[in-house]
Structure formats: structure tokens, C-alpha cells
Simulated scan of single mutants.
Amino acid sequence: MPSLTQRLGLRLPIVLAPMAGGISTPELVAAVGNAGGLGSLGAAYLTPAQIGEAGAAVRRLTQEPFAVNLFAPQSTSEPTAPQVERAVAELAPFHADLGLPPPALPPQTSGDFEAQLDAALEVCPAVLSFTFGRLETRHLEALRVRGILAIGTATGLEEARQLEADGVDSIVLQGGAAVGHRGGWSEDELADTLALTRAAAQSVRVPLIAAGGLMTAADVRAVLDAGASLTQCGTAFLRATEAGTSAPYRAALAAAKPGDTVLTRAFSGRTARGLRNAVTAGIGHPLPYPQQNALTRQMRAAGAAAGRADVLSLWAGEGVAQGREGTAAEILAGLWP
């Protein structure tokens, strides 16, 4: 069997983590691909039309393979009226400080996965990666028919085994140090990336992609030696020239010190790792995902426009203090010299 690197035609064993919300711009995706890695377009918050437009933009910038990432469909329950009232009351002071009207939960809180997937199939990337759960057999078959590799995300061994049984082509193993949302759907082990990689290499047979806290060439080499086929890096690229990271977000990343990250549900309702700020400290009763994500959207947009890092979701992994500015190609060169 060809290796995953060979199947994807990569020159470097590095995948750009699919950071949704505007970080993984077409320019960043293409730059990583042109430098020899696999660029990933975080498309979970895009409409079907935007997915098509972003895919076309990537193709105008590169002929290299790339990935599109979506959030797997999840069963969600509507929050109760008291839950909404409590979440709104917690956010109200932040809205008032930003000069916004009182927070209100919009009627539409999540995207249409089936329509997003159809749009991704039309783009026909080399890879469709997904987080937050599992895809149905029909989804995986639709990818297989088009020659698109399916890559799921696991935070522990049991999730990895389930994804393997589903028939995915590869699995991202997300260690506890990783940037952003936890990508699993059952019990999150928050495991050390290297230890999780070693254990999974003995437990599953599909190619593994190690993620979480990989900021240096030594980190990358260690997980490859432990059994990973590829590595996935997110925090390392947050300050890349081509990334869509806002100015206040970049400034907060540049000032970050070891130990400055925290696991929080404050912004989206799902556990995610980012820098501590006023919102992570002040929100104690968030709604579930995706309702909390929708509820905080206006605050986050206004904060970005006002240059207010204290109200932004500053996603960052535990290695954030080792991050640096530079082009995507320069950052890749530091990860695989």
C-alpha cells in the first residue's frame, strides 16, 4: 500500500490544522500546499456557496492537493428558557461594554451539513476531514466514489477504533494540548499527544495523523517515530502572514506565555483550548453548542472590529509561546528542516 504521504503527493509530512472561522484562508491553504504540506480549509462555518467560492479560490492559487473540513452532524437539544435567560444575562455586560443591543439567540443556530457536504463534493478536494463525530456510511461512500479521502478526528483510543470500523482512510489523533475545539464526541482523554500516538499505533491499523502541541521539528519527528504517518499543526500557523488571524488576536498570541491557555466552553458551548480572557473568566453557564456559538457571534464580531482581544475566542494550543511570525513556507521550514 502506498503511504499516506504518497497517496496525497506531499513533500512534507505536515498538515495544516483546519481552523474554521476565517483563520485558514485560501491563501494560507494554498501556501502550505505550495510549500509541500497539506493545506486544510476550515469550512464548518461557511455556507454551501461560500464553500464553493473558497474551494475555487484555493485552486486559483495552487495545483497541490488540499483538504476541506466540516463538523460532523450532531444531535442537539434545545435549551430551556431558564438556561437561555441565564446565558443571556452573563453576556449582557459584554454587549453593553461594546455598545451592542442586549444579546438574543437567533432562530437559526447551525448550518446544514448535508448541503455543506454536497458543496464540498462539488469542490472535490483530495481530502474531506471531519470533527465532532462520525459520518454515515452513505457519506463515506459518496467520498469514496469521488476519490476523496475521508479523515476523522479522535481524542482517544475508543473513538479511533470506531472511526476505523466505519472505514475512514485516516484518523487525526488530537492530544490534549491542541488548539481550538476538542474534536471528539465521547469521553475526551485529553491525552499527551506522543503517548496517544504510541497507543493508537498499537491499536488501529489505518494511518494516523498526530495533532496537539507540535511546534518544533523535534516535536514533529517524535510523533512520526512513535507511529504517526503525518502530523497536524495549528497553533504554529496562527501568526502566518497568510492566516486570517485578526490584529488583536495576533497581538494576544505574541504576548502569550507558557500556561496561558485554558479549556473553555464560554464561546461556543463545546470545550476548546484558547487564551484566558474576560469571557473565559466571566461565563460560567454557557448554552450547549451550537446555541452558545450563535449567541456570542455578535460580541465576537464587534470585538474584532474594535480591536478588543478580551472578548474574542483566542484559540491557541499549549505551545503558543513557541509560535512565531512568518510566511507559511518559513514556518513549514522550521517544522521540517
Rank of each mutant, 00 (worst) to 15 (best):
S3C: 10
L4Q: 07
L4I: 13
R7G: 04
R7C: 07
L8P: 00
L10S: 02
P13I: 04
V15F: 15
A17L: 13
G21Q: 11
A30F: 02
A31S: 13
V32C: 11
G33E: 12
N34M: 10
A35F: 02
G36T: 11
G36I: 06
P48M: 12
A49Q: 14
Q50C: 06
G52S: 14
G55V: 07
L61C: 10
Q63S: 15
N69D: 10
S77I: 15
A81P: 10
A81V: 15
P82S: 06
V84R: 05
A87C: 07
V88W: 02
V88R: 04
A92D: 12
P93T: 08
L100N: 01
P103I: 14
A104G: 06
A104Y: 02
L105F: 05
F113S: 07
F113R: 06
E122H: 07
F130C: 11
T131C: 06
T131Q: 06
F132V: 01
G133A: 13
L135H: 00
E136L: 14
E141N: 00
L143W: 10
R144N: 10
R146E: 03
G147A: 02
G147E: 04
I148G: 02
A160K: 02
D166G: 04
L173E: 03
G175T: 00
G176E: 07
A178S: 13
G180V: 07
H181R: 13
G183Q: 03
E187P: 00
E189K: 10
E189M: 13
L190G: 00
L196R: 00
L196S: 03
T197D: 03
R205C: 14
V206P: 00
A210T: 03
A211E: 02
G213T: 11
M215H: 05
T216L: 11
T216D: 05
D219N: 10
D219W: 06
L224R: 12
D225F: 03
A228D: 08
S229A: 15
Q232P: 03
C233P: 03
T235D: 05
T245I: 12
A247T: 07
Y249E: 03
A251C: 02
A254W: 09
P258Q: 09
G259V: 04
G259M: 05
D260M: 10
L263V: 15
T264V: 09
T264L: 13
F267H: 07
T271F: 06
A272V: 15
G274F: 00
R276I: 04
N277E: 00
V279I: 08
T280P: 04
H285G: 00
P286I: 09
T296Y: 03
Q298T: 15
Q298I: 09
D310A: 13
V311C: 04
S313E: 08
L314T: 09
W315Y: 15
A321M: 05
Q322E: 13
R324F: 14
R324V: 10
R324Q: 14
A329E: 14
I331K: 04
L332Q: 07
L332W: 00
G334N: 05
P337K: 04
P337I: 00
